[in-house]
Design a binder for these strands. Structure first.
Ligand SMILES: [Mn+2]
Ligand SMILES: [Mn+2]
Ligand SMILES: [Zn+2]
Ligand SMILES: [Zn+2]
Lengths: 152, 152
DNA sequence: TCTCAACAGAAAATCATTATCATGTAGAAT
DNA sequence: ATTCTACATGATAATGATTTTCTGTTGAGA
C-alpha cells in the first residue's frame, strides 16, 4: 500500500487538469475542496469537506463546497452517494459506480473488492431487457471494530 | 400470473392483521393508503399514494399518508427506497431488501428475479468482516419500452 | 497594470419530510 | 343507541440538506 498516497496525488492532479481543460479558475478554496475530497478516506460529506477546508481558509462558505462538488458531478469526476436518512457522501477517487459497505454504527463507508457485480448486471440485462447505465450496490451492517465495542 | 392479484389481497389482509395486532384503528383513510400501497405496481411515492387516496377521500391530507407510511416502516412492513434526486418510493408487497431496476426515462421501478445477491453478501462478509444487516442493490437504465420510443 | 467574466460568501429559497396542535371520530364501555 | 376518550386526521409550521440569488471580489489573460 506504499503507492496509495502517490495515487492520490495523481488523482488530485487529474482533477486539476480537468478543471484547466474546461477553463475553470484555480481559486484557493476550490483547490482546498479538491484536496479534501481526494485525500479523505471516509467518503466525506459536504460538511466534512467544509470543516476540513475551513482549517486553512476560515472564511469559506459551505455554498462554495456545494458548488465545487456540483462542478465535479457535472464533469463526471465524483460519485455521489445519497441516503434517505443522512447527508450525501462522496467518492472523488473512484467516480464510477462501485459497491460500498456502510457501518450503521460509526457511519464508516468502505470500498470492498467485489468481482461479481458485472455478472449481476449481465443477468439483469438478460432478464429485464433494460439498457443498464449505472448501479448502486450498498451493504449495511456493523464493521469489525464496532462489533468489538458492541460486545462489552 | 393469475394468482398475482390474489396474492395482493392476501398481502393487504396481512397488513390489516398487523394493524389489528398492534391495536391501531381502522380509519377509511388508513385503509385506502394501505390499498393504494399494496395494489400499486410502480413502487409509488407518497405523492402517488396521496393522489390515489384523494380520488376516494378528497379531504385527505398528505400528512396522513406520510404518517401511515411511517407506521408501516415501524412495523417493518414496507421497504423504503430513498433517492438523492427524487422523492422516496415504497414497496409494501416485499418489505425485505431486494434488488431493483429503475428506468431513468419514465421512472418505472421493477423487481427483477436475481439469484446472485446472497452470494454477493457472503463475499462481502468474508472480505470485510462486516456483520451484514441489509442491502440496497439498484440498477439504473432505460426500460425496453423507453428504448423503443427513444429510437424514433 | 487593467479588465471583466467567473467566483466566493452571505443570505434567501426550495422541497421533501417531520412535527405540532386543534378538531374529529373509531371503537370500547355503558 | 349514547357516551367517552385516546388516537387519528388535516391544516399548518418547522426542519434540514441542498440550491439559488445577489453583490462584492479576484484569477488570469491582454
Ligand atoms: Mn467508494
Ligand atoms: Mn420492490
Ligand atoms: Zn463501525
Ligand atoms: Zn422507461
Amino acid at each position: 500500500m506504499k503507492e496509495a498516497s502517490e495515487d492520490l496525488e495523481t488523482r488530485f492532479h487529474k482533477l486539476m487538469e480537468k478543471l484547466k481543460e474546461h477553463q475553470f479558475r484555480f481559486t484557493p478554496q476550490r483547490i482546498a475542496v479538491l484536496r479534501a475530497l481526494v485525500f479523505s478516506d471516509i467518503h466525506p460529506s459536504v460538511e466534512d469537506v467544509f470543516h476540513q477546508v475551513r482549517e486553512q481558509f476560515p472564511t469559506t462558505s459551505i455554498a462554495t463546497v456545494y458548488k465545487t462538488v456540483a462542478l465535479l458531478k457535472d464533469l463526471g469526476e465524483i460519485l455521489e452517494l445519497g441516503f434517505p436518512d443522512m447527508s450525501n457522501r462522496y467518492d472523488a477517487r473512484k467516480p464510477y459506480p462501485h459497491p460500498h459497505v456502510i457501518c450503521l454504527r460509526c457511519r464508516k463507508i468502505i470500498d470492498p473488492e467485489l468481482e461479481r457485480v458485472p455478472e449481476l448486471e449481465r443477468e439483469i440485462r438478460h432478464k429485464t431487457g433494460f439498457l443498464i447505465l449505472s448501479h448502486r450496490v450498498d451493504f449495511f451492517g456493523i464493521c469489525p471494530e464496532c462489533q468489538q465495542s458492541e460486545s462489552l
